[in-house]
Design a protein around this nucleic acid. Structure first.
Lengths: 213, 213, 213, 213
DNA sequence: GATGAATGAGTTTTCATTCAT
DNA sequence: AATGAATGAAAACTCATTCAT
């Protein structure tokens, strides 16, 4: 009996702990999103969550640490959606795969509107650690895009061009869309349509097909 | 004699004042570029310029004020290069005009590498004032691009597409290039070639011409 | 049965309580000895003992209270070894009694190495209470030594000298030895030999016997 | 003219700076002496001196830094009085030289009553830096005393004994006297007489000359 | 005008103690 | 009794801005 009740208690305590930890993360996310990293003070976070000063430090080591954790969370989620383009038989067309990735990245960032703002706008230069993680993430992203483009070339879907330049352009268009989406306080955005628009632009460019001739 | 010498003195004093003011702006630009807005302290600026602490406040009202002035300077210079697309007779082709603008924007930002970093990365969220100026600038830029695209459509150079989306994509590609250029510590970059690459990407997209058929 | 078992339970509970109280005292002693009063945190003590934070406060009122209790314990033990010099018939020679006391004091402090460190180095100035107890203890000690010296003079064993000064010197030599012993991490020290050395120095001084003539 | 007046101004400014620096040191000394290292807060020091919080940090890097400076000052002054025993012809007798050193050490510490308190009681264990300087100082002191004792033995002034033990005993007696002097709030103490008493005790010990035979 | 010493509000972080479970 | 999460007062330190000289 004792054991069971102890287990129950411990379990409940652990859950409560996790719950509060999550509450602090959520509050911090809101505050960071509203005020930016430098404008957000520990005081703002604890006021938002409704906890005492010391309680914050019971769950996180510092302002920087909680920010890093939020950042890591978002980057991890983004990475989950960035899966290499597959050319296996039966796999969807490369372009469709790309469209899927673009759509998921946009969707994730719109859902994490507040943190995305910071990632895109403010995070660079905050901190050596933050910097290096962001750099690494963007490098991965560029690498992924470059590979996809190269694969498209191998399949003769994509024309001859500098894959490096193309990757940068694509990344730029995505970032700009996220920034726009995040700045607009629109709750419901048709992310799918947007992803298709971005992709369409990147695939076909501005010119009329016959304008080049 | 007295009058003349006074005039002379006043003149010289005014010139000296202007000169020093400029020196402080230059020093601040360097420091902001190296350390970012929050990392840059008044101490860093006065050390860089070689003036006393109080002197800084004789020329600028606050840290924020000098930053705003630098920002305004860059935005003004950028605006000078963003001239509406002309369809007057004898004007260069629209595409060439666009290429020119892209080239000048890139060139200006690379030349003002340090401040550009801040505009792209850090300035948003600093301050209501800074924010609104940046928003206004980007809005103008988008507007300019949108108009140019629309003009291209009117001339049947540009295919049917959402000019809003196209403008955002183009802005995104440019920003990404600037960020890349600014991050790389390359002194000499072939901005012209880059502008052409960006333009080429934006004009033609990724796909092979015959891949669509 | 109920009564008996209740008594038994009460008894067992009381014993357990005493046992745990002692465990906390021991853990605190170790921590205080290693880190000093200010460097020792309640967290260190409860980690050392393996109890919860709140449990500590079930047994002791405060950090200061447990420190005071440890201090009192050591002082009481030291006092037990400081018995007045006896001149009763059949009593050992005064010098031998002195030697015994010095030996016991050194031995006790070396055995309580950790607490002794604090008494000698850090305890003064911590707290009015701690201060007054230490002052009282040292005053007693000085008094004891002074009396012993005076007794030695009455018995014509000890030369004419200021007993106050002599007592202070003797106390000083003992404290210095304890400090040295405690600083050296030697586990086994020949306390007896040391006590004899100290005593020899104090009795005979530096000079050659014939150097005075 | 300008140069001269500038020099004058600079000179005056420098003097004022030195003066204020000294005032802070003095205030800190008083506060440290009254409350001990841990009990002394920056707030106490700035209240004592009558300056703003930031001003303190204009002159000293941290609480630890100012304490270290005070400590170094006292140790330096003490070292000035600890000059090796000279056996050159015409030099004063070794014992007289020793007496001089003891007298000067006592005098210096009594004059720097407040800091001496901390050195003797509290300083060990404060900080790695403080610790190592104190250790070094005491090691020097022991070395000096040991050498003096050995020299006395070479000159047949001092009897056969363990110079290490003797040095520790002598150091102990001196420390005890300083502690006593510092604790007593007596303003005027006959340091000379005390130094002679200490020395007499250390030289001749307790026993009557004829008691040993 | 120039100087730089002085200011003090504001920020992060620590840790002994309390209290609901 | 035991637990350990929560508390919040208190402390060190920063830095944009002011002001007497």
């Amino acid at each position: 009996m004792a054991d069971e009740s102890l287990d129950g208690r411990t379990l409940r305590a652990t859950r409560k702990r996790q719950h509060r930890r999550q509450a602090i993360l959520t509050g911090a996310l809101k505050v960071f999103g509203e005020k930016g990293y430098h404008g957000a003070h520990i005081s703002d976070i604890i006021d938002e969550v409704g906890i005492a000063r010391g309680t914050f430090y019971l769950y996180f080591e510092s302002k920087n640490a909680i920010f890093l954790e939020l950042l890591d969370g978002l980057l991890a989620e983004l990475r989950r959606h960035i899966v290499g383009v597959s050319t296996a038989e039966g796999a969807p067309p490369v372009v469709a795969q790309l469209a899927g990735t673009v759509r998921e990245v946009l969707r994730t960032m719109v859902q994490n509107r507040m943190l995305s703002t910071i990632i895109i706008r403010e995070a660079v230069g905050l901190d050596a650690e933050v910097d290096s993680r962001l750099r690494a993430f963007y490098a991965e992203l560029l690498h992924y895009i470059r590979d996809a483009v190269a694969e498209g070339q191998r399949l003769s879907l994509i024309r001859e061009l500098d894959t490096e330049v193309a990757a940068m352009c694509i990344l730029g268009t995505i970032k700009q869309f996220v920034e726009q989406l995040v700045m607009m306080d629109v709750q419901e955005v048709d992310v799918d349509r947007m992803a298709l628009s971005v992709l369409d632009f990147n695939l076909r460019g501005l010119l009329r097909r016959d304008a080049e001739s």
